[in-house]
Amino acid sequence: MMDDEYWDTYPETLTTADVAKILRVGKPAVFARLQSGIIPAHQVVGSWIIFKAEVRAWLASTSNQAPDGPPAPVDVLATYGDELSFRDLMVLFDKTKPTIYRWLQTGEIPAYHVGIRWIIHKTQLRQRLRETSNQRGHDE
């Protein structure tokens, strides 16, 4: 299996090009596998959000050296506090400030606009990630 040093060369949120490189396939194959739910990811307003931790757990579960059964659940929000800021979302989703603001304003990401601040509760964001996961049908 790929070691920590290998994985450390990739950001926490992967691009489709990153996934193509990891899997040694073309981007069309990555998109097909995202659509079918083979590669775990989240689709938010047409954007694929691919978390390294989820891909790493999925790959570990496909190894002929792995124990049988589904991969252990991965909590990509574990290191965040109970409330996140728009800056946290920029890092988490690897998206620009205008994209995050648009998602907040349209309700794609559940949040509260208090004064000049956006407050995102981790429990609501976790639920939204469950809803946008391409793994929903696989787990239920």
Rank of each mutant, 00 (worst) to 15 (best):
S63V: 01
M90S: 01
Y112I: 02
E5W: 08
T9W: 07
T16N: 08
P71S: 02
V44Q: 08
M90Q: 15
A57P: 10
A41R: 00
L129I: 03
Q135C: 05
T13H: 08
P110D: 06
Q65A: 14
R136E: 09
A57Q: 11
I39E: 03
E54S: 12
L59W: 07
K27R: 15
L34N: 04
V19E: 07
I22H: 08
L129R: 00
V19I: 09
H121P: 00
P67M: 08
S47P: 00
I39W: 05
A32T: 08
L84F: 01
I120A: 01
T13A: 13
E140H: 08
D68S: 11
V114G: 01
M2L: 14
P110K: 05
T99G: 00
H121G: 00
P28C: 06
S85A: 07
A53N: 11
A78H: 11
F31C: 03
G115V: 04
D4G: 12
Y80C: 02
L129M: 14
H121M: 11
R102F: 09
M1V: 11
Y80M: 05
K52G: 01
P73L: 04
V55T: 10
R102M: 09
T16A: 13
L92R: 01
A29D: 13
H113L: 12
R87S: 11
E83P: 00
R130Y: 11
L84I: 02
R102I: 00
T62D: 07
E131K: 06
T79K: 15
G115W: 08
R136P: 00
E131N: 13
L14Q: 05
R136K: 11
T96R: 14
E108G: 02
A53W: 08
I119P: 00
H42P: 02
R102W: 09
G115N: 10
T13F: 01
Y10R: 06
T79N: 13
D82V: 01
D3F: 10
I100M: 05
I49L: 15
A57V: 10
P71M: 04
A32I: 00
G137I: 03
V45R: 14
T15F: 07
W48L: 04
A32E: 14
T15W: 09
D94R: 12
Y101W: 12
S61G: 03
E5H: 11
G107R: 06
V76Y: 01
N64F: 15
T123H: 14
P71R: 02
A20K: 05
L77F: 04
Y101R: 15
S47T: 11
E54M: 09
K95M: 13
I119D: 09
D88C: 10
A17T: 13
P11G: 06
A72Q: 13
D82H: 08
I120E: 02
G46I: 07
Q43E: 14
V45N: 14
V55A: 04
H42Q: 05
D18S: 12
D3Q: 12
N134E: 09
V19Y: 06
Q124E: 15
V44D: 07
G26F: 10
V30F: 03
T62L: 15
G37R: 07
Q127V: 06
D8W: 09
A111M: 06
F31S: 04
P98G: 07
Y6D: 06
T106N: 14
A111R: 04
E83M: 03
